[in-house]
Computed example of a mutant assay.
Amino acid sequence: MASPAALRELQRDLETKANDLSRIQKDIAKNHQVRKKYTIQLGENELVLKELDLLNEDANVYKLIGPVLVKQDLAEANANVRKRIEYMSAELKRLDTTLQDLEEKQNSKRDSILKLQQRIQSLQAGKSKA
Rank of each mutant, 00 (worst) to 15 (best):
V70H: 14
Q25L: 12
D20H: 12
E15G: 02
Q124F: 11
P4D: 08
S108E: 13
E57I: 01
I28Q: 03
Y62N: 03
E46T: 00
L95Q: 09
V48P: 02
A29Y: 13
E104H: 10
N78V: 01
Q106F: 05
E9W: 14
V68T: 09
A75T: 04
Q117S: 08
K50D: 12
L95T: 02
E44R: 08
K83H: 13
V48E: 04
A77R: 02
L54T: 05
K115I: 00
G66L: 06
L47V: 01
T97W: 06
A130H: 11
A79N: 06
A79P: 00
Q117D: 08
L54E: 07
L102S: 04
E86S: 12
S89T: 11
P67W: 10
I65E: 14
R82N: 12
A130N: 09
R119Q: 15
Q117K: 15
E46Y: 12
S89C: 02
I24F: 09
S89N: 10
R35E: 13
L116V: 02
V61A: 05
Q100I: 00
L116T: 04
G66C: 10
S122N: 13
M88C: 02
V68L: 07
L10P: 01
N107E: 11
L47T: 03
L14W: 06
K71I: 02
I40T: 05
R12G: 04
A5I: 05
E15N: 07
N56F: 05
E76C: 00
